[in-house]
Computed example of a mutant assay.
Amino acid sequence: MTAALSRAIVVDRPGAHRLVERELPPPGPGEVLVRVAAAGIYMSDRELYEGRRAPGYVRYPVVPGHEWSGTVEAVGAGVDPSLPGRPCVAEGFRSCGTCERCRYGETSLCTAGYAETGFTEPGAFADHVVVPARLLHPLPDGVDPRAAALLEPAAVVAAAVRAGRPRPGERIAVVGAGTLGLLAVQWLAASSPAELTVVDPRAERAVRALAFGATRALTPGEADGGTGHFDLVVETAGAPATAASSCLLARRGGRVVLTGMFTAGATGIDPVHLSVSQLEVRSVFGASSAAWADAVRALALGLLDPAPLVTHTFPLERFGEALALVGGGDPATGKVLLRP
């Protein structure tokens, strides 16, 4: 009997990838085998491909792909036998579940060591992916797989919203109108803010935020006049100056949540301003299990619809072409998906 085969994109080393065909990976005890429906490409995937990801956060050779949706195809020993056929997503961080931080529910801060699907473990730029069943989040039948593939960044936004605690009638700013920023606008619009402003130097991206629920869109230069104006500022850009500038946008006693991934050399936050203004500053790294549950619930209820963010879809065979679009600077490029 011929073994079933499954394709995957393997990045052997920075700058080198190949499409391989291999035996279908079986799920082990406590695992599920998922047929991938759609997988999003993010800037961190391009960093992985170009060798710009910190050594402790990638393990070559690797099958990338940490944003994805799919359908459970098979389960391993000890896993709920009713799961096959269910649409699903799964958390990327392979948290241990037993360390102190995990027991506090802070699974994105697991102290057992970094392990993440698509970076150190085989990911979803493939026909199939195997993940621990304890990380699985089943989805409603009939869910749009393109929208569900963006639940990973939506979970990061859910973590930011949890940290920011928006209240009805507040003045809120979102800095950055990329994937995270637009998802944040959608989510925060549901909190009934008095004002929801998006700040981004790319006029095309910022204007798009208006369709997602923002009340106005500003460039950073235009936003300077709003210094000290906002009750809550959610930073999503990760640009060199946006952590510091986001703190300047918040009113005295306001709240700032940093979700962008900053690189070495980013402008520091002025400690004098931080102290005198009595700001509350929180940062977000990934998403806890609770934030994932929030994102899945928001999608199921229709409070969140990431599908309009998708502008390009490619088969696995065109991975290189798809990757080149991400971060390429074309304002018409939104979210890029692979559809096995």
Score class of each variant (00 low, 15 high):
residue 245 S to G: 07
residue 230 F to A: 05
residue 205 R to Y: 11
residue 189 A to V: 00
residue 210 L to D: 02
residue 233 V to I: 03
residue 192 S to H: 13
residue 252 R to T: 14
residue 186 Q to P: 02
residue 218 L to H: 08
residue 221 G to Q: 14
residue 211 A to M: 07
residue 201 P to Q: 10
residue 240 P to V: 02
residue 191 S to E: 13
residue 246 S to F: 03
residue 230 F to G: 06
residue 201 P to D: 09
residue 254 G to F: 02
residue 239 A to V: 08
residue 231 D to E: 13
residue 188 L to R: 02
residue 224 D to W: 13
residue 195 E to L: 14
residue 250 A to C: 09
residue 193 P to C: 08
residue 247 C to D: 02
residue 239 A to M: 10
residue 198 V to W: 00
residue 221 G to R: 13
residue 249 L to G: 01
residue 198 V to P: 01
residue 205 R to D: 05
residue 217 A to E: 05
residue 237 A to T: 07
residue 248 L to N: 11
residue 244 A to D: 12
residue 254 G to R: 01
residue 236 T to I: 06
residue 231 D to C: 08
residue 244 A to T: 06
residue 244 A to I: 06
residue 218 L to K: 10
residue 189 A to N: 00
residue 223 A to R: 03
residue 222 E to M: 09
residue 256 V to Q: 04
residue 251 R to S: 04
residue 252 R to E: 14
residue 192 S to F: 13
residue 207 V to N: 09
residue 203 A to M: 08
residue 256 V to G: 04
residue 211 A to R: 14
residue 195 E to S: 14
residue 217 A to M: 09
residue 219 T to Q: 12
residue 224 D to E: 15
residue 202 R to K: 15
residue 239 A to P: 10
residue 231 D to H: 14
residue 193 P to N: 04
residue 202 R to S: 14
residue 190 A to F: 01
residue 197 T to I: 09
residue 216 R to C: 02
residue 204 E to G: 02
residue 206 A to G: 09
residue 193 P to K: 04
residue 194 A to P: 02
residue 225 G to Y: 02
residue 197 T to M: 03
residue 226 G to H: 15
residue 231 D to R: 07
residue 190 A to Y: 01
residue 238 G to R: 12
residue 220 P to K: 03
residue 221 G to A: 15
residue 232 L to F: 07
residue 209 A to K: 00
residue 232 L to V: 04
residue 241 A to D: 15
residue 253 G to Q: 11
residue 220 P to C: 08
residue 248 L to T: 13
residue 250 A to V: 08
residue 217 A to R: 04
residue 244 A to P: 05
residue 232 L to Q: 03
residue 192 S to T: 12
residue 233 V to Q: 01
residue 216 R to F: 02
residue 213 G to A: 07
residue 221 G to K: 09
residue 198 V to H: 00
residue 250 A to E: 08
residue 193 P to D: 03
residue 212 F to C: 10
residue 210 L to Q: 03
residue 256 V to R: 04
residue 227 T to E: 15
residue 228 G to T: 07
residue 248 L to G: 15
residue 194 A to M: 06
residue 192 S to Q: 13
residue 206 A to M: 09
residue 196 L to R: 00
residue 216 R to W: 01
residue 251 R to P: 03
residue 256 V to E: 04
residue 186 Q to W: 00
residue 203 A to L: 13
residue 187 W to E: 11
residue 223 A to M: 07
